[in-house]
Design a binder for these strands. Structure first.
Length: 882
RNA sequence: GCGGCGGUGGCGGAACGGUAGACGCGGGGCCCUCAAAAGGCCCUGUCCGCAAGGGCGUGUGGGUUCGAUUCCCACCCGCCGCACCA
C-alpha cells in the first residue's frame, strides 16, 4: 500500500446514520405510489446497473411487499447482545428484500408494560413510567447507532395511551364476542401479606416473603377463551413456514387427545361424574375412581361420613403443596378414600371413590376412572392401597408392551378379584395392545383398538358416554393485580353489574399512583378518585376494574398496529392491513415459541372471526435465533460475563459488531462470544476498506476519476488471466451470498465475501483497476446488508458517490459461474489418488482416459483388474479395481 | 418417560451421496521497523516418511452404495421443551 490508511468506523458510521435519518431513507408509506419511500428511490436509480447486475429490478405500486419484523424489545435497562443479534439478522433480511425490489416494512416498538419494570421501580423508587422512558431512549439511540434500517415514523410503545386505547378496544371486542369472561379460579393467597401469590412465589406451602402458610382462595379472574381455538391453532400450524421444533412445542402445549367422556354415577348423592379417558377399551378394568383434591364436590362427598376429617386434612395439605412438589415424577402415590362409590356404567359394578393428588383438576374433568391393570399410575395407586387389579387385555405372545414378561406366577396380583387369573400370567400393568378379556361377551376376543370405537358407540347409544377430544391447553388468565399494565376497561355498577366502558370513552388511562407496590389488591384500587366513576349504562355510582392486563395481551397485536401506527380513529384501517399483513418474516428468540406466538395466533383468529382481519395466521415464516453465550455460559450480571453491545460498538463500530455476531455461527444456533473473533472481523472490514481506498486512488490517478463523475461499476464481461479469475470469483460470490441469504446462512455468506476480498488482495498487482474496482464494489454490495456503513462508504468511493442501498441486488452471470477446464478428481476404489485438469466439455470416455492416465492412478492400477468405472461429469472418475 | 435438536481439528464452524476441515480464531515461521504497534507473506487434522507418497480420521456398532459427515437401523453422550395429561 502506498501509504498507511486507517479504517475509522467512528468517523464513517455517524455520517451515514445522519444521512439516513435526514432523508428518512427507511420510511415506507402505506400508499405505494407515495414519493420518498425507499422502494421508490430504488426505482428511480434502478436504471444504472451495478455490482454486475443485469436486468434492473423494477419497483413501484406493483412491487411485492415484504413485512420483515423482529420481536419488539422489552425496554429494561440497556440493549444486550441478544438484541444486537436479532436486529442484525432482521436488518440483513430487510436490506436484502429491499434490494430485490420489494417494498419493505421494517418497524420498531417497545413492549413497555410489565412486571420487570414494576419490580425495578419498587426496588429503586423510580416510577416505572420514568425508568421505562429512560430505557426506551437508550434502545432508540443504540438502534440508530447500530444503523438498523427502521421506519421510525411507525414507532410505538405499548404503554402509550394512543396504543393501549386499542388494546382495550380489542379486549372489549373479545368481551362482546364472549371470548373474554370472568370466572372464579383457585389462586394462592398469603393471609399475612394480603396478596395473591404466583405459584413460583410459594415455597413448601409457605409464602416466600413472610413464611406464612399459604391459603387457596377462589378469586374472580379474567380469562380469554383460547381453548375455543385449540383445534384451529393446531391445524393451521401445517400451513405456516415455521421451524419444526417450534411447531412441535405448540402441538405439545395444545396437547390434543382423542378418547371418550364416560359418566360414572354416584347413587348415594344422585350425581353424575363424567370422566375423560383415552382408553375406553379398558372400561371393564376400572376398579376404582379418583378425584382431584381441588374437585369442588370432594367436601360434599365426604361430608358427614367417617372420612370427613381425613379427607379435609388431605385436601388442605395437597392444596398448599407447590406445583413442583406435586408433579415430582416418581413420588409415591398418596390419597384417601371418600367412603363413597360410583357405578361403572359398562358393568354396573360399584367401585370405591378416592381423592388423590395425582389427579389434576386442570385436565379433563378433574376425575378419572382408574384401570390399574393397564395404566402405570393407577397400578401404583392400587398396589399402595391394596385395590383390585384386573386384566382386561391379553398380551399377545411375543409382544413387548408396558409390562415385562416374568417367569411363573404373576405374584403381584394380590387382587381379591376372582377374574384376575386368566391364562396370561405376565406382569401388569400392560399398556400395549391385544385382545380383550374379562370384559363383555360382545367384545372379548376382539382387538382392543378394534373394540374401542364399538364400546364408545355402545356407550353413546346407552346414554352413558360419547366420543370426545380433550386438550391440555387452558384458557388464558389475563388479569393481574399489578400497577404497570393496561387497565381492563370495564366498570362495576351496583345496579347494572359489570358494564364495558363505551368505545368512545377509551382509553381508560392508567392513573398516576404513588404507591404501586403490590398489596393484595391491585395498586390501582388505592386511586380512589379514579376507581369511583359512574356507570355508562345508568349513570349511577360505579367502580372501575382495578386489575390490569397481562403484558402478553399488549404484544399479541402490535404487528397489526405498525401497519397503521398513527391512526387515531381506529386500531387500524383494514386497507393498511391488506397492504402489509401477514408478516412475511418474523424473527425472535425461541423462548417465545409457546406463549407469545400462540397468543398472537389466537388474537388473529379471534379478530378474523369478528370481521376485523381477513387472514388467520399473523406470521407466514418464523426464524428463531440462538442465544449468545460467553465462555459457554449464558451472559448474566451475577456471572460477570456480560458483553455489552455499546462497548463493542464504541470500540470497533457497529459494522464490526453486526458482522461478527452473524459470522460466529449459523444464527439459529447458540453462539459463544469471543473477543479475539471480533478482532478478526474488524481486521477484515479494515482490509476491505483499505484495499478499496487504494483502488479508488489508483483509479483516480489513471483515469482522472473524481467523485460524482463516473457511473457505478459496469459489469465487466471480458478479460483474461487474473482479470478473468477475479471476475469469476466475484460472480461466484454473488451467487453464494444470494443463496446463503435466502437460507439464513449469514456466516457462510460473510465467508464468501472474505474469499472475494482475499482474491482481490492476492491478485491486486496482476489485474486492471477496473477489475479491482468491480470486485471490491461487488464485495461492498454483497456485504451491505451486514455492514451497511462501511459498505455504503466503499460503494460510494468506488462508484462516484452512488448509493449502495439504491442498487438492485447483483445477479450472477451463469456463463461466469462455469469454467472451461476444471480439476478432475481421480479415485481408485473410492479413494482420492490424483487430480488432473479436464476440459469442461470432455465426454465420459475422455474423462476415463484422463483418469487412468493420471500418474498416481497408474500406480494404484498396477496389476489390478478394472471392474467398473464411475464417471460424474464435472466432478470425478472412480475406477473400481480388484 | 415422551417430543425436538445436536455430537466434525487446539477453538467457532464449512461441506446438492462425490477432493472432509471453506472462512475465521488461536499457534508457528518470515518480511517491514532502531524497536514496537499496525500491516503484509507462508505453514498449521493426525501418524509414518528426507521426499514422493502412504496409513488413520466426522460420538459407537452395523447396513445400503463404486463412494457415507450426509441415507437407514441400533446404541452412547449433550442441550432444549413437555411431563402423574387419564
Amino acid at each position: 500500500m502506498s501509504e498507511q490508511r486507517r479504517y475509522e468506523p467512528q468517523e464513517i458510521e455517524p455520517r451515514w446514520q445522519a444521512l439516513w435519518a435526514a432523508e428518512r431513507t427507511w420510511e415506507v408509506a402505506n400508499d405505494a405510489d407515495a414519493p420518498g419511500v425507499a422502494g421508490a428511490a430504488l426505482a428511480r436509480s434502478a436504471s444504472g446497473s451495478a455490482g454486475g447486475a443485469s436486468g434492473a429490478v423494477s419497483t413501484g405500486p406493483q412491487a411485492t411487499k415484504s413485512y420483515v419484523l423482529e420481536m419488539l424489545p422489552y425496554p429494561s435497562g440497556e440493549p444486550h447482545i441478544g438484541h444486537l443479534k436479532v436486529y442484525s439478522v432482521g436488518d440483513a433480511i430487510a436490506h436484502f428484500h429491499r434490494r430485490l425490489g420489494r417494498r419493505v416494512l421494517h418497524p420498531m416498538g417497545y413492549d413497555a408494560f410489565g412486571l420487570p419494570a414494576e419490580n425495578h421501580a419498587i426496588k429503586t423508587g423510580v416510577h416505572p413510567r420514568d425508568s421505562t422512558a429512560a430505557s426506551i431512549a437508550s434502545f432508540r439511540r443504540q438502534f440508530h447507532e447500530w444503523g438498523i434500517s427502521i421506519d421510525w415514523s411507525r414507532e410505538l410503545g405499548t404503554h402509550e395511551p394512543r396504543y393501549y386505547r386499542w388494546t382495550q378496544w380489542i379486549f372489549l371486542e373479545l368481551l362482546r364476542a364472549g371470548l373474554a369472561y370472568r370466572k372464579e379460579a383457585a389462586v394462592k393467597w398469603c393471609p399475612h401479606d394480603q396478596t395473591v401469590l404466583a405459584n413460583e412465589q410459594v415455597l413448601d406451602g409457605h409464602c416466600e416473603r413472610c413464611g406464612a402458610e399459604v391459603e387457596i382462595r377462589q378469586l374472580e379472574q379474567w380469562f380469554l377463551r383460547i381453548t375455543d381455538y385449540a383445534e384451529r391453532l393446531l391445524g393451521d400450524l401445517d400451513g405456516i413456514d415455521w421451524p419444526e421444533h417450534v411447531k412441535t412445542m405448540q402441538r405439545n402445549w395444545i396437547g390434543r387427545s382423542e378418547g371418550a367422556e364416560v359418566t360414572f354415577r354416584c347413587e348415594a348423592l344422585g350425581v353424575d361424574y363424567p370422566v375423560f379417558t383415552t382408553r375406553p377399551d379398558t372400561l371393564f378394568g376400572a376398579t376404582f375412581f379418583v378425584m382431584a383434591p381441588e374437585h369442588p364436590d370432594v367436601p360434599r362427598l365426604a361430608a358427614r361420613t367417617e372420612h370427613e376429617q381425613v379427607v379435609h386434612d388431605y385436601v388442605n395439605h395437597a392444596l398448599t403443596e407447590s406445583g413442583e412438589e406435586r408433579s415430582a415424577a416418581d413420588r409415591p402415590k398418596t390419597g384417601v378414600a371418600l367412603g363413597r362409590t360410583v357405578t361403572n356404567p359398562v358393568n354396573g359394578e360399584q367401585i370405591p371413590m378416592y381423592v388423590a393428588d395425582y389427579v389434576l383438576m386442570e385436565y379433563g374433568t378433574g376425575a378419572i376412572m382408574a384401570v390399574p391393570g393397564h395404566d402405570e399410575r393407577d397400578h401404583a395407586f392400587a398396589t399402595a392401597f391394596g385395590l383390585p387389579i384386573r386384566r382386561v387385555i391379553e398380551e399377545p405372545a411375543g409382544a413387548t408392551g408396558g409390562g415385562q414378561a416374568v417367569e411363573g406366577q404373576a405374584g403381584e396380583q394380590k387382587a381379591g378379584d376372582g377374574k384376575a387369573g386368566t391364562g396370561d400370567t405376565r406382569e401388569l400393568p400392560y399398556t400395549g395392545d391385544g385382545p380383550l378379556v374379562n370384559s363383555d361377551p360382545r367384545f372379548d376376543g376382539k382387538g382392543n383398538r378394534e373394540a374401542l370405537p364399538e364400546i364408545v358407540s355402545w356407550l353413546d347409544h346407552e346414554g352413558k358416554g360419547h366420543a370426545s377430544v380433550n386438550y391440555r391447553l387452558r384458557d388464558w388468565l389475563v388479569s393481574r393485580q399489578r400497577y404497570w399494565g393496561c387497565p381492563i376497561p370495564v366498570v362495576y355498577c351496583e345496579r347494572c353489574g359489570m358494564v364495558p366502558v363505551p368505545e368512545q370513552d377509551l382509553p381508560v388511562e392508567l392513573p398516576d399512583v404513588e404507591d404501586y407496590a403490590p398489596q393484595g389488591r391491585s395498586p390501582l384500587a388505592a386511586a380512589e378518585d379514579w376507581v369511583a366513576t359512574s356507570c355508562p349504562a345508568c349513570e349511577g355510582p360505579a367502580r372501575r376494574e382495578t386489575d390490569t392486563m397481562d403484558t402478553f395481551v399488549d404484544s399479541s397485536w402490535y404487528f397489526l398496529r405498525y401497519c397503521d401506527a398513527n391512526n387515531d380513529s381506529a386500531a387500524w384501517d383494514p386497507a393498511a392491513l391488506r397492504q402489509w399483513m401477514p408478516v412475511d418474516q418474523y424473527i425472535g428468540g425461541v423462548e417465545h415459541a409457546i406463549l407469545h406466538l400462540m397468543y398472537a395466533r389466537f388474537f388473529c383468529k379471534a379478530l378474523a372471526d369478528l370481521g376485523h382481519l381477513d387472514f388467520q395466521e399473523p406470521f407466514r415464516a418464523l426464524f428463531t435465533q440462538g442465544m449468545v453465550t460467553k465462555d459457554g455460559a449464558k451472559m448474566s450480571k451475577s456471572r460477570g460475563n456480560v458483553v455489552s453491545p455499546a462497548s463493542i460498538v464504541e470500540r470497533y463500530g457497529a459494522d464490526t459488531a453486526r458482522c461478527y455476531i452473524l459470522f460466529i455461527a449459523p444464527p439459529d444456533q447458540d453462539a459463544d462470544w469471543s473477543d479475539d473473533g471480533v478482532e478478526g472481523i474488524h481486521r477484515f472490514l479494515g482490509r476491505l476498506w483499505r484495499l478499496a481506498a487504494e483502488t479508488a486512488e489508483r483509479g483516480a490517478a489513471i483515469e482522472g476519476v473524481v467523485d460524482g463523475q463516473v457511473e457505478p461499476a459496469q459489469a465487466a464481461t471480458g478479460g483474461e488471466g487474473a482479470d478473468l479469475e477475479l471476475l469469476r470469483k466475484a460472480h461466484w460470490a454473488i451467487d453464494k451470498v444470494s443463496t446463503d441469504l435466502r437460507r439464513f446462512a449469514f456466516n457462510t455468506a460473510i465467508a464468501a465475501v472474505m474469499e472475494l476480498l482475499n482474491d482481490s488482495s492476492r491478485l491486486r498487482e496482476q489485474v486492471t483497476v477496473e477489475s479491482q474496482r468491480f470486485a471490491l464494489s461487488t464485495a461492498a454490495s454483497l456485504l451491505f446488508p451486514f455492514a451497511p456503513h462501511v459498505c455504503a462508504e466503499i460503494y460510494a468511493l468506488l462508484n462516484g458517490g452512488a448509493r449502495a442501498w439504491e442498487q438492485p441486488w447483483p445477479q450472477a452471470d451463469p456463463a461466469l459461474l462455469e469454467r472451461d477446464t476444471y480439476e478432475l478428481v481421480c479415485q481408485v476404489n473410492g479413494k482420492l489418488r490424483d487430480r488432473v485438469p479436464a476440459p469442461a466439455d470432455a465426454t465420459p470416455e475422455q474423462l476415463k482416459e484422463l483418469c487412468r492416465a493420471a500418474p498416481n492412478v497408474q500406480a494404484h492400477l498396477d496389476g489390478k483388474e478394472i471392474v467398473k468405472e464411475i464417471v460424474v461429469p464435472g466432478k470425478l472418475v472412480n475406477v473400481v479395481v480388484r
